[in-house]
């Protein structure tokens, strides 16, 4: 497996990277950790005449937790997400989810920006970002704009990001309440058969708010407002969970693949979601 020829660019700033993108248009593509893109290039399923390696852009790195707001540079690796104690304190679900992504080597290279930006429905972070109601910052030739994760995904590998834009950072309010990321996969390193991100706030023994998103059960991550609403006001008991699961099942649209047929995936989606809700509630 050998990729086609390409020209390699390693700009040192966002501005420089945007300039290369502008110059080469559709022929150029940015690369973060490369662990999704490089295998595709080796299989010659992705043709990238101009490859823009973002590793030297310091502006894209770092995690900050300030005043209840979490900001993460797009080039922050999964490994850094896992080992950052401030992040773990502010949003423990980030570490929990990142540990379920790929394997140690891939987590040293794989970045949150790459994970959310390439639009692979199998990636874990997009669903989690929707659950957290995160905001993505996109830098383009006309400046910066911000898009909510919940509005970002259009279809498999299709997002709101324009070809001449770079996703530079992710921010979200440190979540309140109990959090859980639950994932069924065939083995270490696999994408989810089904995964659920759940955050529940508790007040006076009842669910005050709930945010629920699932992964790899549609051609985009699935944030289900209805599933969250089904829990609000309840004691998060069996009936409420069933209502949440029913709502979620109405929003997902899995397809058959080597992980199994549609019926199985729907069943597992319900089981995994229920487990995530139970765990989040127990932590709320």
């Amino acid at each position: 497996m050998i990729p086609s020829e390409f020209e390699y660019h390693r700009p040192g700033s966002i501005a420089a990277a945007l300039a290369v993108l502008e110059e080469h248009g559709d022929d150029a593509r940015v690369m973060a950790g490369g662990h999704s893109l490089i295998p595709m290039m080796k299989l010659r399923m992705a043709d990238v005449p101009h490859l823009i390696d973002l590793q030297s852009i310091d502006e894209l790195k770092g995690i900050s937790v300030e005043g209840g707001k979490v900001t993460i540079g797009a080039m922050t690796t999964q490994h850094e997400l896992i080992t950052n104690d401030a992040l773990a304190a502010a949003a423990p679900i980030m570490r929990e989810a990142a540990l379920l992504i790929a394997d140690p080597q891939v987590r040293y290279m794989g970045t949150i920006g790459g994970n959310v930006a390439n639009g692979d429905p199998g990636n874990d972070m997009p669903g989690l970002m929707q659950c957290l109601d995160a905001t993505f910052s996109l830098h383009g030739p006309d400046g910066t704009r911000e898009v909510q994760a919940r509005d970002f995904y259009e279809a498999a590998y299709m997002t709101d990001r324009e070809d001449d834009e770079i996703l530079t950072r992710i921010s979200f309010a440190a979540p309140k309440g109990g959090q859980a990321y639950e994932k069924q996969k065939r083995k270490i390193g696999d994408y989810a058969t089904a995964a659920a991100a759940v955050i529940i706030e508790k007040a006076s023994g009842k669910v005050a708010s709930a945010s629920i998103a699932m992964t790899n059960l549609s051609d985009t991550p699935v944030f289900s407002e209805a599933a969250g609403s089904a829990l609000v006001g309840s004691d998060c008991g069996s009936d409420a969970m069933s209502n949440a699961v029913s709502a979620m099942l109405g929003d997902i649209d899995p397809t058959e693949d080597n992980r199994g047929p549609v019926e199985f995936k729907k069943h597992v989606a319900g089981v995994i979601l229920r487990r995530a809700i139970e765990r989040a509630w127990s932590r709320a």
């Binding site: 069924q184 065939r186 058969t193 992980r259 199994g260 047929p261 019926e263 199985f264 069943h267 597992v268």
Partner: peptide
């Protein structure tokens, strides 16, 4: 006996 095939055994036996 991967996950979905085991699940299918249970499903076919009415265990769900």
């Amino acid at each position: 006996h991967d996950h979905w095939r085991i699940w299918k055994i249970a499903n076919d036996l009415g265990l769900h």
